[in-house]
Write a protein that binds this DNA or RNA. Structure first.
Length: 894
RNA sequence: GCUCACGUGGCGAAAUGGCAGACGCGCACGACUCAGAAUCGUGUGGGGCAACCCAUGGAGGUUCAAGUCCUCUCGUGAGCACCA
């Protein structure tokens, strides 16, 4: 024998072989309705990964974590009898390809194709069971023609507040339809990033810097395309409720939409015909308003400012305008403002209160003006302290007697009370708890025409155009400042072939340099902005349902099947356990109830796995588009993703985030080369809970490799010549009672754990199984057969090879990926004797073995008689005995 | 500053309110071997000869029983950051 280090089992040959066979046999192709092999009665399962941007750097071990998780579920569901949609594709528009192209002169399409090939090869080596016939690429004209088509749907519709849904624009009875379109052109201050040479969405700006690259962003008025996502604010919040998503992500989205309930109150400007509307979430504190603040940009500032304050106001406005967003956030600590010289009249008590301007009031939120209640708002309090404005308490944490009436409180509080309580010094509101006071004052204001209950949102409309070359062109043409849509038949609209697509350094997009392309006709010119990278990822999951369709963005039947499934779909999480469920009831064993039966489905994708970084960007945008398509009758579910899971990031071996600069990046290719794809898959899932952040460990992969080698040697042994041959496996030997218990406990645990995505504990249980059978010879073939089935989703290559070598197929079984998932027999899990812990005052003092059917009396008397128990209870009085069946006995003495 | 999540052996981690540490890594010892590697077996939270005692970031509480529930506190991570 050579001294070359032998592999613990021949994974290198096995894995290449099965990857080739899966491709040749199209093993994981999911037939669509109407296609050969499609069974309309078969339930569907849609397991989706967040598709990657194919960067030049290739994958690191963090990428496949989520992909492996969905792959396991997909393979498992397939064995459970589902028609499984498990596709992959490429989110390939984006800055890096364009920047690389600018640097090297190579067209981004060329680099993109090379990167896609690299990613695809890497994913192939992991042994992922994708249906590559459904591959999508957002930069493919056959894909983005439909992205453009969806844009036209947005352009061609409006949100009808009466029906609470999008409708075709021709149902709009108002004036100018351009004022209500869901995709609209607007001249407004936007986030312009000079370094990137493009504008950015609010979601892409973090603390005044671009999310990508961290470059400064400034506000600039520019004509841009916007999508009216604010129309959907309520539905985006409310329809989260029915989704099976992590609460933290739902919370993030709710906070991002930032809906708050309150009232709009109209103040008159003293000595003027103008009125000032303010938004407040605390109308109950109206009697405590001691001044008013307008944002520096408020339209009434010039009108109201008195001549002697004009200079101060002008100077303040100028300095506020000069501040960038970042400075404004950084300087937020110290509040500043200027008195306008004008006064407003409080509608409830006719009191004159001074009007100030200050940049702590934002022009873009609410009405851009507030009533300041310093006693009950931290910002107003701080401001009032600085400028010596009066502070008047109108809410008390405790109900107070005898403090009503009009007499204002004289002593100023040391800190604001922002909680809920009871109204004081508030005329008719006195004594009312905050909630009632809010309702009461709102009703009074409404009667007087001085206010109304309203809602406000932090969510802004979505800035949807970018000054880039490598993106979807807008199917829009212009004539004399008026826009119109291209006809659907003119799609796809491809960008011009260009050599120089460097950003112009101005907000003028690179496409503006393509003079021939721009000219649509003698009088019309094309839109030169392009869509943001989010556009393609907003609907890719729909395209997977029918990726080759040339007639529609997705075929109606295919969409209905994959997004809603047959009527019974989802109710059959464990087809083959259905029979056992009946048996189980008879024996009183636990069989997990199918979840879908209790929770109505509002989303189409059954499982969506991806990183948290998309919590408010992609996931909010995609929900918005989906709802528009739903309203217009193009898709069948109101939500796209029923269940969402965020995988945790994988850190480097040093516990730091993986990065090139730290030099701690682990490449999956190297891991697979050394230990094999199965060990890689197994370890990624064994490391810990999927959602958790966890560090990589080279020794850990070797452990998983060792486990799989133990599985291999359960069936195989080396002969004299050093070849692997089938070992001591017996068809005729039946597992004994203890072995039966291990087998069925493992089926139960693995089934439940995969359903719960607790892969680490599923693997641990299979290790228990392997440890048990390593000590058994000969090994019952029936036991190995079940192990191979259970392990197949996690280690598909190894298990298929052993399935073949042990000849199960020759004995009538199907190829392993199509073999039905095993069912467990609950009766084999029940023993006739159980061991109980015997506690005295909560501490374990003895163990007790009793018959399963022993009565409480028997158990108690046996426990009390135990010698150890006698010792601990001697001389004491037994006060109470608690028996937890099958677990323990606790004797309480005193 | 506010909101949310999480703190368990040397390490990754298990644990419907019911025997804390399953499973793996590492480590120690043993078997096989001329020897090593690989493999197989045994042990492995801390203290103590032992009986026992102590242990899930810390302090209280609820309970027959708390890693798990409640209150406060410290630490780590994520998100938001003048949103009235």
């Amino acid at each position: 024998m050579s001294n070359e280090r032998r592999k613990p089992y021949p994974f290198d040959q096995i894995e290449a072989k099965w990857q080739r066979l899966w491709e040749e046999r199209q093993t994981f192709h999911a037939p669509n309705p109407g296609e050969a092999g499609f069974d309309p009665a078969q339930p569907k399962y849609f397991a989706l990964d967040m598709f990657p941007y194919p960067s030049g750097a290739g994958l690191h071990v963090g990428h496949p974590e989520g992909y492996i998780a969905t792959d396991i579920v997909a393979r498992y569901k397939r064995m459970c009898g589902f028609n499984v949609l498990h596709p992959m594709g490429w989110d390939a528009f984006g800055l890096p390809a364009e920047q690389y192209a600018i640097k090297t002169g190579q067209h981004p399409a060329v680099t993109t194709a090379a990167n896609v090939a690299k990613f695809k090869a890497q994913l192939g080596r992991v042994g992922l069971a994708y249906d590559w016939a459904r591959e999508v690429n957002t930069t493919d004209p056959n894909y983005y023609r439909w992205t453009q088509w969806i844009f036209l749907q947005l352009y061609g519709s409006w949100y009808n507040p009466e029906t609470r849904r999008a409708e075709p624009i021709d149902t709009y009875a108002g004036g100018n339809p351009d004022s209500v379109r869901l995709a609209f052109s607007s001249e407004a201050p936007v986030n312009w990033c000079p370094a990137l040479g493009t504008v950015l969405a609010n979601e892409e700006v973090v603390g005044g810097l671009s999310e990508v690259g961290g470059h400064p962003v400034e506000r600039r008025p520019l004509r841009q395309w916007m999508l009216r996502i604010t129309a959907y604010a309520d539905r985006l919040v409310e329809e989260l409720d029915g989704l099976d998503w992590p609460e933290s992500i739902k919370l993030l989205q709710r906070n991002w939409v930032g809906r708050s309930e309150g009232a709009e109150v109209t103040f008159a400007a003293a000595g003027s015909v103008e009125t000032i509307k303010v938004f407040t979430t605390r109308p109950d504190t109206l009697y405590g308003a001691t001044y008013m603040v307008l944002s520096p940009e408020h339209r009434l500032v010039d009108l109201l400012t008195t001549p002697d304050q004009a200079e101060a106001v002008r100077a303040y406005r100028e300095s506020a305008a000069r501040k960038s967003d970042m400075e404004r956030t950084e300087l937020a600590k110290e509040k500043t403002g200027v008195f306008t010289g004008a006064f407003a009249v409080n509608p409830v008590n006719a009191e004159r209160i001074p009007i100030w301007i200050a940049d702590y009031v934002l022009a873009g939120y609410g009405t851009g003006a507030i009533m300041a209640v310093p006693a009950h708002d931290e910002r107003d309090f701080e401001f009032a302290r600085k400028y010596f404005l009066p502070i008047r308490e109108v809410v008390s944490p405790e109900p107070r007697l005898g403090l009503g009436g009009e007499s204002p409180c004289s002593a100023e509080p040391l800190e604001p009370f922002v909680g809920e309580g009871y109204a004081i010094h508030s005329g008719p509101l006195d004594g009312l708890p905050t909630a009632e006071a809010k309702a009461e004052i709102t009703a009074r204001l409404e009667r007087l025409g001085l206010g109304k209950g309203t809602r406000n949102y932090k969510l802004r409309d979505w800035l949807f155009s970018r000054q880039r070359y490598w993106g979807e062109p807008f199917p829009i043409v212009w004539e004399n400042g008026r826009h119109r849509a291209l006809d659907e038949s003119e799609l796809p609209l491809t960008p011009p072939e260009m050599i120089d697509f460097k950003p112009t350094g101005t907000p003028e997009p690179p496409l503006s340099k393509a003079e021939d392309w721009i000219r649509y006709s003698t009088i019309e010119t094309r839109e030169t902005n392009t869509m943001p990278q989010w556009a393609g990822s907003c609907w890719y999951y729909l395209r997977y349902c029918d990726a080759q369709n040339r007639e529609r963005f997705v075929g109606e039947e295919a969409e209905r099947y994959w997004m809603t499934g047959p009527a019974a779909a989802g109710a059959q999480t464990m087809r083959d356990n259905a029979d056992f469920a009946l048996n189980a009831e008879a024996v009183g064993a636990d069989v997990p109830a199918p979840r879908a039966a209790t929770r109505p489905k509002i989303g189409g994708v059954d499982l969506y796995v991806g990183g948290t970084e998309h919590a408010v960007l992609h996931l909010l945008y995609a929900r918005f588009w989906h709802k528009v398509l739903y309203d217009l009758g193009h898709v069948s579910t109101p939500e796209p993703f029923q269940k969402l899971v965020n995988q945790g990031i994988i850190l480097g071996e040093d516990g730091q985030k993986m990065s090139k600069s730290r030099g701690n990046v682990v490449n999956p290719d190297d891991v697979i080369e050394a230990c094999g794809a199965d060990a890689f898959r197994c370890f990624e899932m064994f490391m810990g809970p999927l959602e958790q952040m966890k560090p990589w460990s080279t020794l850990g992969v070797e452990g998983s490799s060792r486990f799989l080698a133990r599985v291999w040697r359960l069936a195989m042994e080396e002969n004299q010549a050093g070849e692997w041959v089938v070992g001591p496996v017996s068809d005729s030997t039946e597992p004994d009672r203890a072995a039966q218990k291990v087998i069925h406990a493992t089926i139960k645990k693995v089934t439940e754990d995969i359903e719960a995505l607790s892969f680490n504990t599923a693997i641990a249980q299979m290790m228990v199984f392997v440890n048990h059978f390593t000590a058994v010879t000969p090994r019952p073939a029936s036991a190995l057969r079940i192990l191979l089935q259970l392990l197949n989703p996690i280690a598909p290559h190894l298990t298929e090879e052993l399935w073949e070598r042990l000849g199960f197929e020759e004995n009538g079984a199907r190829p392993l990926p199509s073999e039905p998932w095993p069912a467990y027999d609950p009766s084999l899990l029940i023993e006739d004797e159980v061991e109980l812990a015997v506690q005295v005052n909560g501490k374990v003092r003895d163990k007790l073995v009793v018959k399963l059917d022993a009565t409480q009396e028997t158990i108690i008397s046996t426990a009390l008689a135990a010698p150890k128990v006698q010792e601990w209870t001697a001389g004491k009085q037994v006060k109470k005995v608690i028996v937890v069946p099958g677990k323990l006995v606790n004797i309480v003495v005193g």
